[in-house]
Amino acid sequence: MALVNPNFAEEMERFGADAALECFNCGTCAAICPLIYEHFPRKMIRYLQLGAKDRIMENASELWRCLHCGLCTQTCPREADPGEIILGLKRFAVANWRRS
């Protein structure tokens, strides 16, 4: 993995995902997600925390697995709003594609 980029989390606030660093990586969101897919969505949240922008863009398609059902947000023990973080990342990815 490349170096961490601590500024990314703040950059993301523009896309409405401002609670990403509140996540303490317990994994509830991944396990409760109806999609049952690897580490999703925590993986994306973790990449956001570390500012691994390239990782996010490489795997951006995965973001659209999210059905926006909100169960992760409802059950998040830290109230870190994972559903909203994924939506924010979708917005970030769309904006990125549009720019390119």
């Binding site: 109806p34 999609l35 659209w64 697995r65 059905l67 926006h68 059902c69 169960l71 409802q74 059950t75």
Partner: peptide
């Protein structure tokens, strides 16, 4: 705590 039916994923 309702569970999604999976409908919204159809297009993806």
């Amino acid at each position: 705590f309702t569970s999604c039916c999976g409908g919204p994923a159809e297009s993806i």
